[in-house]
Design a protein around this nucleic acid. Sequence first.
DNA 1: CCCTAAATTTAGAATGATTCTTAACGGAGA
DNA 2: TCTCCGTTAAGAATCATTCTAAATTTAGGG
Lengths: 153, 153
Amino acid sequence: MAQNELAHALEILKSHKVRLTPQRKTILNYLITHHTHPSAEMIYEDLKQHDDSISIATVYNTVRLLVDYHLVIELKNGDGSTHFDYFGQPHYHVVCENCGKIADVFAPEFSRLNQQLDEITRQQTHYLVNRTDIEVKGLCPECQAKLGLLHNR
Amino acid sequence: MAQNELAHALEILKSHKVRLTPQRKTILNYLITHHTHPSAEMIYEDLKQHDDSISIATVYNTVRLLVDYHLVIELKNGDGSTHFDYFGQPHYHVVCENCGKIADVFAPEFSRLNQQLDEITRQQTHYLVNRTDIEVKGLCPECQAKLGLLHNR
DNA sequence: CCCTAAATTTAGAATGATTCTTAACGGAGA
DNA sequence: TCTCCGTTAAGAATCATTCTAAATTTAGGG
């Protein structure tokens, strides 16, 4: 399944005449198999640990490329860097405003909601819509507990 | 109306025991009366032109404060800086991926959609939801025309 | 299978938005 | 009015990201 996912993503790139370099395959595969919402720096460090060492510039170039082709989406969690997530299945994200932890949300309504939003947006602004991202912010269960304790003193 | 809006916003800050300094009032008033989605730098430059000169550090501090109290929301348009918008009426934004122009979208469904999203998010992740932002990306009418011309050659 | 053009990778420098630091200042409650 | 403590300001510092230029590599054609 992850194997198919990689092949599928590579196929999309290929069909756009994007060169399939080893670095791009490595990073794409990393994102498909690690749903940890890593930053460019984290991808770079993690790959350095293992066999493949890829320059930080290439990591930045590649994730931007993958975002352009809608294979990956960008996330901000307030730590100053940009985080990335492979976008195989439609979903959105919740970010903890206290610790920055990111969680995925898979909602069956997601596609329909997006279509609705696209339509409203198009009618009201005449923009040609490419993508719609939903970003929810709040407190993760752990931070609720922590902050709850403090409030109870 | 803008007058009331300012008073209303100041009241919210006051109720949270936030000090109402002249700088904060100036910046808040600027954002209430300028729906141009300015960056911190743009706010700083624009206020320098007129009577009030406020340090760039204070502009950054103040917009962060206003975001924390949900009076203002942050936007990214791909130019590297963060843009700000007074959030008096619930709305969301479309960003042009070509030129960065930001447009507001006011949808009557917006509040209901948000509630739905909050509920789904809460059930699935147990996060305590604070706010939900929707960000649509696409091409503004002008850029559609420009790029359309290029494609037709 | 080899060659070539054009794209990509890389290391390190450069950029630039944002944050930090520290001293002076000023709101607001008593 | 006084005092405490949060806020402002200028400039330095940080750090994520982009840029630069040279070396390398992909992919298509012969």
